[in-house]
């Protein structure tokens, strides 16, 4: 257990700056979203704004700024965690740590996923709290169902960054990156009404879970010295 904690500390040193900065941006965006909502409620009246959120055609998607925040955090964490080591070829030193390589790769990924989960929980809790303070449950529940897909996308983005970074073959790196981007587009369709994506969230969650161990594939190839 101890070597894993040491590895976690090593990963924390690499990622802490980008993680904390991106999380602060995310928190700022959530507060900004509801600052705009409160401003609109003051200017147009709560009943008019609530009606526009419910029945405008298209409805006001007041939370659309939140859409790319979780994925931004995932990209920051993923890039800061893997890119410097891979580009400077220091990742080979990590493989010489007294830890089974598979456990090592999984621990590195687990750390990244933990950071993303912490960020997601913080942002979603803040969003939930402000949302429920301003709107009735008939609005908040569908809104949260829609936003959930964006939080799930963060895991897919991180997993594909990890997988692409560890892939030793440049051409395959491009292929993985393209596949990842194409897969991510499934999470970012237009929102025609609150509650969109709710029906497809189980499939999107399943896809996110399925991408979790993908890093092992390129990690295995990296370890074997594939070209």
């Amino acid at each position: 257990m101890k070597p894993i904690l040491h590895l976690f500390y090593k990963e924390w040193i690499k990622t802490r700056l980008s993680f904390i900065c991106s999380l602060l941006v995310g928190i700022g965006v959530v507060f900004y979203i509801f600052m705009i909502v409160e401003n609109k409620m003051t200017l147009t009246g709560a009943k008019t704004y609530t009606m526009n959120v419910l029945y405008s055609n298209p409805p006001i998607i007041y939370y659309s700024l939140l859409r790319y925040i979780p994925i931004l955090i995932a990209i920051c964490v993923g890039v800061s965690q893997y890119m410097p080591e891979v580009v400077q070829k220091r990742i080979r030193l990590t493989l010489h740590l007294p830890l089974d390589n598979r456990r090592l790769f999984l621990s590195m990924e687990l750390f990244g996923l933990l950071l993303i989960t912490v960020a997601n929980v913080v942002l979603f809790s803040l969003f939930y709290w402000k949302n429920h303070a301003l709107f009735p449950a008939e609005i908040t529940h569908p809104v949260e169902a829609t936003a959930l897909a964006w939080f799930l996308a963060a895991y897919v983005a991180y997993n594909y960054i990890a997988m692409t970074a560890l892939e030793p073959n440049r051409v395959r790196q491009v292929v993985y990156a393209v596949t990842g981007v194409v897969l991510l587009t499934l999470y970012f369709h237009e929102v025609p009404f609150h509650g969109a994506y709710a029906a497809s969230t189980p499939v999107l969650a399943l896809l996110a879970v399925a991408t979790c161990p993908l890093m092992l594939f390129s990690g295995f190839r990296f370890n074997k010295g594939e070209r």
Binding site: T179, L183, L186, P213, L214, L216, F220
Partner: peptide
């Protein structure tokens, strides 16, 4: 383990291609 990961990769890729192609 790596074989399971490969199967997952293939399934995810088939799903994505079936959506876009």
């Amino acid at each position: 383990m790596i074989k399971i990961v490969r199967i997952l990769l293939i399934l995810v890729t088939i799903f994505t291609m079936a959506f876009y192609l």
